[in-house]
């Protein structure tokens, strides 16, 4: 366990290092998209990529089979920026902010608080729902999660690692009170979450007006991944498809930041 002194010095190093401008060789590490990555990881990787694209920051994607173990927090994705290694969307957002780049400069403090509340709604509902579907639904686990997650390990490690990961996720969901839910409960939660998001979005282009924020990136990452990932149980995608404005938002962001940018 790191001592407080170490934490402080790390924070200071982050502050000091943060003053330098965004370098050109930033790498974003994530698992292999085609054969390995799973729904929840894919969603957060896509959300982070969307955020970096919205902030017009250059990066290259580095797929690694052991990305999860390389990450300082044990979660993907993470970026390597000079000597710094920062994982997950929110720490990356604050790291980017320390370089003077932010998508939320125009927001007042009330809106910022709102945005954080919606972001935590997503990590409390959508992320847990994705984890639940991926690891706790026997059909999905057997047909999709296990073969994909274990694909990078030799036998019998593929079984062991899947089992280890599954028990860690179940433990987490248990603490959050999700482990005992049924699939229908989970879809109901997602439904309510989507409803709240739709109400907030209303007729605007993005959640807070005409410019995207990290909330848009996060929503896009999760919803787009759920919509485009074929699973044996497509109820989750069907639930989200019921909310046309959210689907439109996803299409808009994809067109604006992924299709246009990659073509240009």
């Amino acid at each position: 366990m790191p001592t407080p002194r170490v934490i402080l010095s790390e924070a200071m190093a982050l502050e000091v290092g943060g003053k330098e401008p965004w370098p050109n060789d930033v790498k974003l590490f994530q698992p292999y998209e085609v054969e390995q990555i799973l729904l929840p990881d894919n969603a957060s990787c896509l959300a982070t990529q969307a955020f970096l694209k919205m902030a017009k920051l250059k990066y290259t994607v580095e797929p690694r089979s052991n990305a999860e173990y390389m990450s300082p927090s044990g979660k993907v994705p993470f970026i390597q920026c000079g000597a710094f290694v920062v994982s997950e969307l929110e720490p990356i957002v604050s790291f980017v902010a320390s370089k003077g780049v932010s998508l939320t400069n125009d927001l007042d403090s009330g809106e910022k608080a709102d945005m954080r509340a919606y972001m935590s709604l997503i990590s409390n509902v959508l992320v847990n729902a994705e984890l639940f579907l991926t690891w706790c639904d026997p059909q999905t686990y057997k047909q999709v999660s296990k073969p994909r997650y274990g694909s990078v390990f030799p036998w019998p490690l593929n079984h062991l690692m899947c089992w280890q990961k599954q028990s860690a996720v179940v433990k987490r969901l248990h603490v959050l009170g999700w482990a005992s839910k049924s699939l229908d409960d989970v879809f109901h939660e997602v439904d309510q979450c989507c409803q709240a998001l739709t109400e907030r979005l209303a007729n605007k282009n993005y959640f807070f007006g005409d410019k995207p924020t990290e909330l848009d990136a996060l929503v896009f990452g999760h919803l787009f991944t759920v919509l485009t990932t074929p699973l044996p149980n497509n109820q989750l995608a069907a639930t989200i498809r019921g909310y046309g404005t959210l689907v439109d938002l996803c299409k808009r962001i994809e067109h604006q930041y992924f299709e246009l940018q990659s073509s240009s």
Binding site: P2, N66, Y69, M70, P72, Q80, V85, F153
Partner: peptide
């Protein structure tokens, strides 16, 4: 193999993970 702390070199980080 897992990374010991934040001062660990990135090359070590790249080599972490399970092996059999």
């Amino acid at each position: 193999l897992s990374v010991l702390n934040r001062t660990t070199a990135f090359e070590i980080r790249e080599m972490s993970g399970p092996s059999l």
